[in-house]
């Protein structure tokens, strides 16, 4: 007994469709509606007004936090790239033994299996005034007394976030580099190109899709993070997600929090669409 093709299509497609509608479309619609409500003591009430969006523009605290978040997320992506690219290149081109390559690859990816919270917390014990780093520096005589500059500031947030999200940079770059046919590199060498020229003209352009994918992922993940600010950030480490959490929490201003969340969503969507174009640019089909 076979079901008609149409029914089969419906059956196959409906679970993901229902999932998307229930968990993506409905929540965002609710968020969208909430963003026009207003805060009325003791909670908030339905309304249709643009006050929340006006507040986001007129009160400098939101733009300031947004810019800081973009700065931190950008630096996290940049440092991840600077570390991940040479590592992935080394794995693909220098490590000949497949088992060793696999092991080194897993060494970077494996921390993903450990709870993010635990990994971020570990950095606290490393960077603290009485932490491992300070103990080491004092015992080796590099510092005369423990320094407090390693923890509770934006640098410690960037270090932690880079560590936490770097696998998302290594994986796509590794995949992109591995896909480059070796004969292209050989052809480049045959035509008299040096190693540097081959890298710049062949390897790098062909791996750009991995770089863009990695940059997008690490940026978006860091952009939405709020745990690092809480655990290792200092008084100047507030991220945009912390502000949203505060609006939905202590401030009990869900309408403003919703407006902020939508702005954040738009920024992330914009980044994804730009990176999508970049990726197509890499494939020569920029549109």
């Amino acid at each position: 007994m076979t079901l008609p093709l149409r029914l089969r299509k419906v059956l196959v497609l409906s679970p993901p469709l229902i999932w998307v509608v229930l968990f993506m479309f409905v929540p965002y619609t609710i968020l969208f509606v909430f963003s026009f409500w207003e805060q009325v003591y003791p909670t908030f009430a339905p309304a249709f007004q643009l006050g929340n969006y006006q507040t986001l523009i007129s009160d400098p605290q939101y733009l300031r936090t947004l810019l800081r978040t973009i700065k931190i997320a950008g630096l996290v992506s940049l440092f991840s790239l600077l570390l991940a690219y040479p590592y992935a290149y080394f794995l693909v081109h220098k490590v000949r033994h497949p088992a060793l390559r696999q092991t080194l690859y897993m060494a970077v990816v494996a921390p993903l299996w450990v709870s993010y919270l635990l990994r971020a917390y570990t950095w606290k014990t490393i960077l603290g005034t009485e932490g491992i780093l300070n103990s080491f520096l004092v015992s080796t005589g590099i510092l005369s007394e423990p320094s407090s500059i390693f923890l509770y500031n934006q640098t410690s947030m960037i270090v932690t976030l880079t560590y936490v999200f770097i696998p998302f940079m290594v994986m796509p770059i590794y995949a992109a580099l591995e896909k480059i046919p070796r004969n292209l590199l050989e052809a480049s060498a045959d035509l008299g190109m040096g190693r540097t020229a081959t890298f710049v003209k062949v390897t790098l352009p062909l791996s750009m899709s991995g770089v863009v994918a990695g940059f997008t992922m690490t940026f978006c993940l860091a952009f939405g993070d709020f745990i690092a600010a809480y655990l290792v950030g200092g008084p100047d480490g507030m991220m945009i997600s912390n502000v949203i959490a505060t609006q939905f929490g202590a401030s009990l201003n869900w309408p403003l929090g919703s407006a902020l969340a939508l702005v954040m969503l738009l920024i992330v969507l914009a980044i994804i669409s730009v990176s999508d174009r970049f990726e197509r640019l890499g494939k020569g089909t920029f549109a």
């Binding site: 805060q39 003591y41 009160d59 605290q61 939101y62 300031r64 936090t65 008084p235 100047d236 507030m238 502000v243 505060t246 202590a250 401030s251 201003n253």
Partner: peptide, 18 residues
């Protein structure tokens, strides 16, 4: 604090955001 609660909360949020 009554309706002033939001004003106080916002004042504190603003300090934290700097």
């Amino acid at each position: 604090l009554g309706p002033r609660l939001n004003t106080y909360a916002n004042a504190w949020n603003s300090v934290k955001s700097q």
